[in-house]
Design a protein around this nucleic acid. Sequence first.
DNA 1: GATTCTTATTAAACTAGTTTAATAAATATC
DNA 2: GATATTTATTAAACTAGTTTAATAAGAATC
Lengths: 191, 191
Amino acid sequence: MEELKKTIRSFTDVSDSDMEFGLQFFKKKTYKKGTFLLKPDQYIDDFYFMKKGCVSYYTIDAGTTRVMEFFSEGYFFTDLYAYIQEIPSESYLEAIEDSTVYAISKADQLKVFDHSHQLERFGRLSMQRTFVINFQRINQLRNLSNQERYLQLLEKRPSLFQRVPQYLIASYLGLTPVGLSKIRKRLSEKR
Amino acid sequence: MEELKKTIRSFTDVSDSDMEFGLQFFKKKTYKKGTFLLKPDQYIDDFYFMKKGCVSYYTIDAGTTRVMEFFSEGYFFTDLYAYIQEIPSESYLEAIEDSTVYAISKADQLKVFDHSHQLERFGRLSMQRTFVINFQRINQLRNLSNQERYLQLLEKRPSLFQRVPQYLIASYLGLTPVGLSKIRKRLSEKR
DNA sequence: GATTCTTATTAAACTAGTTTAATAAATATC
DNA sequence: GATATTTATTAAACTAGTTTAATAAGAATC
């Protein structure tokens, strides 16, 4: 659990005893490619840390798959929207590669936050981090063209293009596969 | 400061003594219509609660105004992106009506969170609330047409349309004034 | 190695926006 | 109350995407 410990401490100082107290509640889980951590109408009780692999977070909306995020190594993740509000999920969390995660239940997480002010602060700061990422996402959606967002993804997460089929990347970018193909053609003709 | 107290307690229990400790740091400030709480390149040190009025949160990008949010009564707000990261702002916070806010400095807020675990929890939970709102925003941007987002705004915040000129609402929706006008025409012809 | 299945590209017709410019309507100012 | 200014609408030409359908390319299976 060294990666997990290190990632927590990248947010804020946590004493060894508080860290030990917190980590005891995380359970290692593995998912084969194509299996689901979560499906629509289920309640989500776990908060995850991705050790190895990749999970696609998506909805199916009138037959259309809409990928919201790909969670790969080092990501904290869950269906945060359903998790926070304690409502049934509308989404899928599907392992699109064989994946190993550490999971902590909501009740255990609350125990940890009650027990440790430092870890509650970690919770607040990791929410802040999520805020920053979502804020950038909103600005990209509002201010950039699809082509610009494609190029930015290519730059920021190049490994995704090795790991994930193009039609899922198109969905993540809010495009049809045809639309993404056109953009790629346009770009290849330019140079 | 009754509204502020009530709004904090809508998130989590806070004892009277912690609440009193926290509230002492909030200062009442007033801004005339057309004045600025923040301009680009400034650092933002305050976290605000809107008591009365309306503030527009926007950037100007190559001459184009892009409204990100309108903060009206009952909102907690700041340029959260710059505030969290302690980087110079790229945005304006402009009073588009005469406005009264309560402000707490970042140093004072940290004092409050250090002093009170309950108020730190309020901090975490209000970040969570912000997450939920931003998540919905992202999904609206990804999954709804401009027309649908216009109709949704009309339904959720009808008073904005009385208070704010249409070209700013167009900007908030990510449209040109011409585009919004077309949508309105299309809708009025339908019925 | 041929066949099947999945994924990616291309073409054609269409759509909801854009820009620019002109005009109309509403608001503020003298 | 006339004039100037700001805000909203309309028109025309354009653009970046959509959908549907056909085809091509790549990967998996027998």
